[in-house]
Write a protein that binds this DNA or RNA. Structure first.
Ligand SMILES: NC(=O)c1ccc[n+]([C@@H]2O[C@H](COP(=O)([O-])OP(=O)(O)OC[C@H]3O[C@@H](n4cnc5c(N)ncnc54)[C@H](O)[C@@H]3O)[C@@H](O)[C@H]2O)c1
Ligand SMILES: NC(=O)c1ccc[n+]([C@@H]2O[C@H](COP(=O)([O-])OP(=O)(O)OC[C@H]3O[C@@H](n4cnc5c(N)ncnc54)[C@H](O)[C@@H]3O)[C@@H](O)[C@H]2O)c1
Lengths: 253, 253
DNA sequence: ATGTCTTTGTGAACGCGTGCACAAAGATTG
DNA sequence: CAATCTTTGTGCACGCGTTCACAAAGACAT
């Protein structure tokens, strides 16, 4: 922290670790809840518990913001809410476009949690001509033909892709060409984008597969180490389990 | 790799790094695509590109599986598909229960990508009595009152929570009590679970906020370093930007 | 059989993220 | 004002994950 009191508190901005950035929204959520209950201050310990993280980690995270806690007291809730919001860029509102208004796209469009955090659904775009004009969540769906114009006119820089996987890369290219520089991709596809464009993906299948892996491991360790009479340890799906154990399988020639 | 040929190829199972596990589904997806095109073998380089990762990382990942590549040739696609599927526990099918059949829950229920990867929607559960019996995606919604029985009867060990945030912890507790040991949580809540239960979360708002952070940083670095006449570099949302720059803000007393 | 050429599997170095543990800062009390 | 008590901010060490770079393994040609 270097004793010298540089009058600029926060601006260590350049260099907030990615892992920290990913946790800021978590802190913000917990702080917002406290703020609504009019709690004036929190200790790192309390807040860490609420956010589900280690308190030392939380303090270190805040130290990157140059944040002002008060030793012996804790952090000022309102002040932190503002600081984190600012750091995340949530003092502005971000117009977002959703492309591919099917099951998932429609669900997202209807989701209220967007607006409450500074994001505004500015446009819904779909390739199906039949959908053009149809209102979803109170917003008329527009056709892909106008994608470029829609993005430009609304100043959209964040795009959400909820099209089928086959269309994702193409849609992505068009979004980027139109000026979008951040993409949230729900299609199970690896998108390639030019430098300077951020892509984050949400993949339900991957999450489930990771869970399945651990689930299987739990089951396996039961049968290996512990006795089988362990009470509440299922983890053997669908009943079938029997003669399937190792299977040398296909093996290449 | 230790020259000695222990007849058991894979079973280095205990000790696959978490980061590797998280990438296996990615590889699997890429391999499945190759398999459908009847491609017999791939090099680590090709596969890595398809999966969007570094080839050295991919090779190291496979080495944890004790995988058999062939030097000078690459990996046998079918064999790898099987090995990874087995490692992830996808040779079995996993019955999944979705709790909270609203916008998102219904979208997930309708999603086809489940079944194709070894997961089966075994039950849809909602607290709204009006929904009980209503078919969603061809499955009748059941009432929360029967949650325990439903989980038990179907041998569900993976639960998906898509209820409002306020209900999430309670639903989680009931799922765990009923025998669920893996939870995928879409509600913006920190769930607390007993040891041995895995929780993964999907949080759209967090993803957007992370994107917003980087988006803002891109914009900020423009105004600092480069001239303002830069052509395709938007990243200033909603036009308003002016007298708002620093704002000493509330500051604690 | 020998040599060349391709590609794997991994040793080693590095960087990031995490968590412990504690000195210092400040509040609070007497 | 001094003593005490609480809680921050961070130095430090450790472990995980990533990446480079290369020896060895094997395919393939001659
Ligand atoms: N529904 C889910 O729960 C879920 C879960 C995980 C992943 N996903 C993925 O999300 C994506 C969407 O899923 P869904 O269930 O909503 O599918 P969906 O078929 O219901 O909707 C897709 C929509 O995209 C539109 N579309 C197709 N091509 C387009 C194009 N080139 N430009 C613009 N729009 C186009 C279609 O008209 C349709 O309205 C898929 O990639 C799917 O794999 C969905
Ligand atoms: N819709 C989205 O795109 C989206 C995006 C991100 C996060 N989320 C989160 O996902 C969750 C669901 O969102 P949604 O838009 O589908 O909400 P929704 O209101 O449409 O659906 C919630 C459903 O849960 C049911 N429910 C309420 N309490 C319950 C209980 N105790 N047990 C069982 N069921 C119960 C309700 O009857 C309703 O059908 C929310 O937590 C939301 O924050 C949604």
């Amino acid at each position: 922290m270097a004793t010298g009191r540089t009058h600029r508190p926060a601006t260590r901005s350049r260099g907030i670790p990615e892992a920290t950035v990913a946790r800021l929204p978590l802190y913000l959520r917990a702080l917002t809840a406290l703020s609504e209950r009019s709690v004036p201050t929190v200790s790192s310990e309390e807040l860490a518990t609420a956010a589900g993280v280690n308190s030392a980690k939380l303090r270190k995270d805040f130290s990157y913001l140059g944040s002002y806690g008060t030793r012996g007291v804790g952090y000022d809730v309102e002040y932190l809410v503002y600081q984190i919001s600012r750091e995340l860029g949530l003092t502005q509102d971000w117009p977002v476009a959703i492309v591919g208004i099917g099951n998932l796209g429609a669900a997202l469009a209807n989701y209220g949690g967007f607006a409450s955090r500074g994001f505004r659904v500015a446009a819904l775009i779909d390739a199906d001509p039949a959908m053009a004009g149809t209102p979803v969540a109170g917003i008329a769906v527009q056709h892909t033909d106008d994608l470029d114009r829609i993005i430009s006119e609304n100043g959209v820089s964040i795009g959400v892709i909820t099209t089928p996987p086959g269309a994702a890369q193409q849609v992505c290219d068009r979004l980027v060409a139109a000026g979008v520089t951040s993409i949230l991709n729900f299609a199970p596809t690896v998108l390639s984008v030019p430098e300077g464009v951020d892509v984050r993906k949400v993949d339900l299948s991957i999450e489930l597969q990771i869970l399945a892996f651990h689930e299987q491991r739990k089951a396996g360790e039961d049968t290996t180490a512990e006795d089988e009479g362990a009470p509440p340890m299922r983890a053997t799906p669908t009943g079938r389990k029997g003669p399937d154990g190792d299977m040398p399988a296909v093996m290449p020639a």
